[in-house]
Design a protein around this nucleic acid. Sequence first.
DNA 1: GATACATATTGACACATTTCGATATGAGGC
DNA 2: GCCTCATATCGAAATGTGTCAATATGTATC
Lengths: 118, 118
Amino acid sequence: MDKIYIEGSRVFKALGDPRRAMIVDMLSCGELCACKILEKFAMSQSTLSHHMKLLCECGLVVGRNEGKWTYYSLSADGIARTKQFFCDITSDKENCICKELNPDQCSCNVNGRCNVND
Amino acid sequence: MDKIYIEGSRVFKALGDPRRAMIVDMLSCGELCACKILEKFAMSQSTLSHHMKLLCECGLVVGRNEGKWTYYSLSADGIARTKQFFCDITSDKENCICKELNPDQCSCNVNGRCNVND
DNA sequence: GATACATATTGACACATTTCGATATGAGGC
DNA sequence: GCCTCATATCGAAATGTGTCAATATGTATC
């Protein structure tokens, strides 16, 4: 299994939970402290902390400590990388050599090479 | 929990598995039959069938039966909707009313309204 | 330093997901 | 109709995830 898929899918895994998707949405207009996010959900503080950890570990969210508070915000770089990965795996690779072969068998991957006949 | 997050995160959940992300990548240049996909992975046929079912159920992949074969391909509509959802939850909502309030408390969601003070 | 508060970590449990072998379904060829 | 092949479904086992209460850490305040 190529490392690129493992790392790329980590963000999607984090966004695969509706609460975490909602948290990302909440952060999209600016940073929020954990307690403000917690107010919106019927979950314990430890559970929210767990979710925030996952969002941070995948690179989509960054945490900033200020005194006893932790402010979370979206990572512009993490968002850009995720968009890029999604586009990579879903868009047609125009210049792949296997285009010249049977189109039914084209199976380019994000590395830009055809892996049908490996 | 808003329905929009539950449905939107379903695609991300499907892409959260590296094998399924790789399958999507394989399908990005055109349709493939299940047996061709299976060749690329060290998994049983029933396991692949399970993964394909998840990818279809989230709307990212569509299956087409032809004789005893099933051909899978990406859904352009599913891709577009996923991109839109990702952009919705990650991009700043310029015209939200809560922009006029304390920016620290801005927490617009995809419905275009601020949910901080609900 | 004692106390209060915000957040992180731990341990345990319930539930979901992944996986496989076995079996079922459904199409084509004999 | 019977056999073969491609794929789907089922049932069970292993593993992963979400959740909470309890506890730890770390910061400000008195």
